[in-house]
Simulated assay, not measured.
Amino acid sequence: MEHGVLIPPVYSPISPAIHPRHQLINQQTADWARNFRIGSPELREKLIGHDIGTFAARILPGGDEEVISLLADFVLWLFGVDDGHCEEGELGTDPKQLVPELSRLLRIAQNPEVSMLTEDSLAAGLRDLRRRMDQRATPGQVARWVDALREYFLSVVWEASHRNEGTVPGLNDYTLMRLYDGATSVVMPLLEMGYGYELQPHERDSTPVRAAAEMAYFVITWDNDLFSHHKESRGQQYYLNVLRVLEHHHGLAPEDALDTAVAQRDRVMCLFLRMCAGLNASGSPQLRQYLESLGSFIRAAQDWGISSHRYTTPEDPADLPTTFRDTPTDDSTEPLGIPAVAWWWDAVPDEPAPVLAQSAQPAEVGTGTGLPRLPVTDRLAAVGNRSRTRA
């Protein structure tokens, strides 16, 4: 799909918000990246220009400033690993070399005092992140952060195997691994830390709450695939993207692949709203805060995705939307037909979606909504059926 498609405004029923000290946080993250020499000089300055501090300030708009700075530094570090080692570095096509390198970094995350990678800037940055986390997090939160980092590392090795072989995964495998390689789950402990609580296991590990978190991962990563497609498809490196998966394995034209992906994320967004409505009715105050933070994470990724130079690529401008729409293109309550995530629909209370009265427009990036588009339920069903035959 190298010739590109026009990304439409996406459905966004969640209000925007940002921490009032976002500019200072963004500058502090730039200073941190330079102090720890994250990535090559060229990559470092590019990452600094992506305004990652404002992204973190949107994720935790009412959170503790120190945790927001920690989150911003961590996200920049993740991009240093992903861009430097995986997507653009030599290790990104060599899984056998990537595994031990990431395993060494994982050991640093587990035990920052170990005498390993003492001259490595990414390891030095990770040591700093872990030590700062120890000052703010409970042992359980740290353990979950390390476990999520392991999941992320495993998924980028999977990506490297496809780069090495030049293959495109099927929709089910792509959906499953996208839950991890988007580095969304590693943010979850910081959502709790930012507001000074720890969600109890009987709530966090319950099937409905796990499903709600995964729905948020799905919407965030599908949106990222839409916003990043221009950048990825014009690069010289192999790339993985849901639009490429749909076109390659399901024989869809570029415009139909785009419509299908948008409808998939819209259907999951509607499901997320229904799930949160049900959980909020009986959940603890901590669970309600957690669910609100999941929504903030979704909206933060949207606002940042259509405004950051990482995706607008001023040197080769991407024609991204500057507004959002108030209505979904697909609000069906039927599962997508992707085996890895079909269980989400069984976990949601059987009740109507809440009526949203608030505007879905961003605070800084524009007003007005996109024109409604026709649902593509039939196309989704066809893709889902083909997906089941490949599972």
Rank of each mutant, 00 (worst) to 15 (best):
145 W>F: 15
95 P>N: 01
42 E>W: 05
5 V>W: 03
237 Q>T: 13
327 T>I: 13
151 E>I: 07
106 L>M: 10
233 S>K: 13
383 V>T: 11
65 E>K: 12
121 S>G: 07
64 D>R: 15
96 K>G: 01
31 D>Y: 11
149 L>D: 11
125 G>D: 05
244 R>C: 06
301 A>L: 02
142 V>P: 06
177 M>D: 12
190 L>I: 08
211 A>Q: 06
354 P>M: 09
309 H>I: 12
328 P>K: 13
213 A>H: 09
59 I>G: 07
147 D>Q: 11
385 N>V: 08
66 E>A: 08
169 P>R: 10
76 L>N: 14
195 Y>D: 08
379 R>Q: 13
78 L>M: 10
216 A>W: 07
184 T>Y: 09
213 A>P: 04
270 C>V: 10
160 A>W: 07
323 T>W: 02
40 S>I: 10
376 V>F: 02
289 Q>R: 15
195 Y>G: 02
37 R>D: 12
296 S>V: 00
259 D>G: 06
88 E>K: 12
166 G>R: 00
365 V>W: 08
361 Q>A: 03
97 Q>E: 14
351 E>K: 00
233 S>R: 14
321 P>I: 09
96 K>L: 05
181 D>Q: 04
230 H>D: 13
332 S>Y: 04
135 Q>R: 13
237 Q>G: 04
243 L>M: 04
98 L>K: 07
18 I>A: 03
284 S>H: 02
295 G>W: 01
215 M>V: 07
91 L>E: 08
42 E>Q: 11
100 P>M: 05
320 L>Y: 01
68 I>S: 08
166 G>C: 01
57 A>P: 12
352 P>T: 12
155 S>N: 07
185 S>P: 08
120 D>H: 14
333 T>P: 00
24 L>A: 09
76 L>Q: 15
275 M>N: 15
